[in-house]
Computed example of a mutant assay.
Amino acid sequence: MDYTVKYGLEFNPFLKNSRDVLVETQEYREVLFRLNYLLSTKGFGILTGSAGKGKTTSLRNWASSLNPSLYKVIYSSLSTLTVMEFYRNLASEFGALPTHRKAENFRLIQGEINRLAVEKRQIPVIIMDEANYIGTAILNDLKILFNFEMDSRDRAVILLAGLPQLNNTLRLGIHEPLRQRIVMNYNLEGLSKEEGRRYIQEKLKGAGCTQTVFEENAAEAILNAANGTPRMINKLCNASLLIGNSANLNIITADAVMQAISECELG
């Protein structure tokens, strides 16, 4: 028997797939509130969190909810580009034909932002993921690139998302001008034990499950090992289902979870 059927699931909600089950935790709602605030004020925003805390998932869901007639979303995780590659890539994303001259690409990008804002009444939303890897030269240029009408107005939303060390980089004196422009800065802390428990329940419910899958002690062991990180909860739940099925368990036990934790740590 397929393990999803065994545990009353229409599909495995703990795997990345097209049928994603979004769990709206308190922190997810807070992230949306902060992102929407940034959308209304425009300018620079920072979203940080350690690996697996849900930054990219939050960003993807938020960005997909924006009205495409009002916002032009540009998403980039090409954070290790050279300055020239960065400019060429951004110009191309705006639909312009990039050149091999930085100054010309600079003018192209600003021209496209102005055209969107003035003619099409669209706000560009530029999301730069893995921004903790962005080089100093590009960070130095960001404030200049998005400076319009003698710094009197912001025409775009620029969101830098990455690991918490992004803030350490921005605290350097050289980045003071950029840091002064930041209107939103939020760090994802992860799920509380209570939210983690609800996260597992909502994932199972979203996959059509009506039966008990994890013993109380088993769920507790997953939450302790995952330490509030959604990606780790997913990984441990998935591994536990496979082990439980292999051992022909009708309900996942704490012993099965401990085996899953051991395998995931070795993997």
Rank of each mutant, 00 (worst) to 15 (best):
R107K: 15
T210L: 12
G135K: 14
G196W: 04
I182C: 03
A226G: 01
L166Q: 00
Y199M: 06
A219V: 05
D154H: 15
E194P: 05
T136A: 14
E130A: 08
I222S: 04
A226V: 10
A117S: 15
H175K: 10
I126D: 02
N234K: 11
V213T: 01
L191R: 05
N234M: 04
E176F: 06
L166P: 00
N234W: 05
N224V: 12
G206M: 12
L160N: 04
L191N: 07
Y186C: 00
G190F: 15
E195A: 07
R179N: 10
K102A: 05
D154R: 09
E130C: 10
N140G: 08
R197P: 03
G196S: 10
I144K: 12
L139A: 03
G135H: 10
Y186E: 00
Q122L: 09
E112S: 13
K102D: 02
R101W: 08
R181C: 03
E104I: 15
M232I: 12
G135Y: 07
M128E: 13
N227Q: 12
N217D: 14
N114C: 05
M150D: 13
G162A: 04
L142G: 04
S152C: 10
R231F: 11
L178C: 03
E194G: 11
P164L: 11
I109S: 09
F214G: 00
Y199I: 06
V125K: 06
V183F: 07
G162T: 04
A225S: 15
A131C: 09
I138Q: 11
R198C: 05
A226C: 05
L163N: 06
R107F: 15
L139H: 02
R155V: 05
E149M: 15
K120F: 14
D154Q: 11
Y199Q: 01
T169N: 02
E194W: 04
Y186D: 01
I233A: 04
R181W: 01
L223A: 10
N217F: 07
Q122F: 08
E112W: 05
G228T: 05
I233E: 01
R115T: 08
L139D: 01
R171W: 06
I200D: 02
A156H: 03
R179H: 05
L142V: 00
E176L: 08
I126Y: 00
A221E: 12
R231K: 14
E202V: 15
A225V: 05
M232F: 07
E220T: 13
A156Q: 00
G228F: 07
E216D: 13
E216Y: 06
V157F: 09
N147C: 15
R121D: 04
E176N: 08
Y133E: 08
I138D: 13
A131I: 06
G208N: 04
I222L: 04
P177W: 03
C209W: 00
G111E: 11
V213Q: 01
L159N: 06
L223G: 02
R231Y: 09
G196Q: 09
T210W: 10
G135W: 04
F106V: 00
S192D: 08
E220Q: 15
I233M: 08
G196P: 14
V183K: 11
I113W: 11
G173K: 11
V125H: 02
R121V: 02
E215V: 03
P164A: 06
L191Y: 07
N140V: 08
V213A: 01
I222D: 02
D154W: 07
A226N: 00
R153V: 14
G135F: 07
E220V: 14
N227T: 09
